[in-house]
Design a protein around this nucleic acid. Sequence first.
DNA 1: CATATCATTGACGTTTGCGTTAATGATAGT
DNA 2: ACTATCATTAACGCAAACGTCAATGATATG
Lengths: 166, 166
Amino acid sequence: MVDKMADQHKPEPDEPFLQIGEVADRTGVTQRTLRFYEERGLLKAPVRMEGGFRLYSEDDVARVEQIKRLQTLLGLTLAEIKEMVEAEEVKEELRATFRPDLDIEERVRRVTRRLEVTERQHQIITAKMDAMLDMKRELEEKVLRTRSTLADLEKERKKLLAKPKA
Amino acid sequence: MVDKMADQHKPEPDEPFLQIGEVADRTGVTQRTLRFYEERGLLKAPVRMEGGFRLYSEDDVARVEQIKRLQTLLGLTLAEIKEMVEAEEVKEELRATFRPDLDIEERVRRVTRRLEVTERQHQIITAKMDAMLDMKRELEEKVLRTRSTLADLEKERKKLLAKPKA
DNA sequence: CATATCATTGACGTTTGCGTTAATGATAGT
DNA sequence: ACTATCATTAACGCAAACGTCAATGATATG
């Protein structure tokens, strides 16, 4: 009860809890988006302070950033991302991997599932990067060709400047 | 007028015009999407046969594929893609780059614009690939760690199988 | 304690990117 | 000429991913 009071009005530097506004600023998403993700199950419901304000952890921030990367880099929908982050929750349950309270078969199943999801992400990103590499090369060729065209045009222009006609 | 008749009911192998259904099949988008892109100015209005059916060229097919890549690989919106393909139309106007009918300053401006757009695409793709490479590496580490965790668990499991308790 | 700022939960609105009829016409095969 | 298949425009529909109030409460500050 002694430290309960301290917890209430001082966040204390060793327990760095963040309010929704700070999380929004740090991650670049809006507060609405954070609540929306929570509604959709992409973020677990965070703890609240007594007034009902949400209190986020650093892990939550990391989670949001992960969601954003899956969205913008891989182009996944929130539904797809949800599947993936659900497997991540298993990870948190497994922070102590060798918890003896779950039977070993269950632990194997969960870690296996997590491995599958991670490998799937890796496969998606690899395929995308391959396609992007092709596109990048095409663009590089095009830049070169266009530059050369431009150089030719500039030469032409100088000639015309030298002998201006009617 | 002699070859006009031939053009009407025979597409003729040297003039490979495609109907909307074929373009849809080949590109994997729907007919609706093709008409929608046309509406939005992403595709120029194709020529029609006398009955009003759209006739697409191979260039149009390439254009659609380009749009799709900009969408899925780079995650651009159709509005952004429109800006980019508008610059490509300039390219088609410039197929004969040294057309003397435009004054040279104008030709320089157009090629310059095209170069800018291409370089922007290149920059976008490069930035994305950099971010993706980071993510890919993280995933690879995670795969390794998870595999090792899994291996430990399997060893544990074998031990338990050897001496089954209550 | 007055006030400014932060938060809360609804609930309805918006934009993007098409899907889905519906009603009708064109073309191709027999 | 009949029929199957392909196309046409117009219009309404819809899910995703939030934005934007509105009405209200909580917290911090001078």
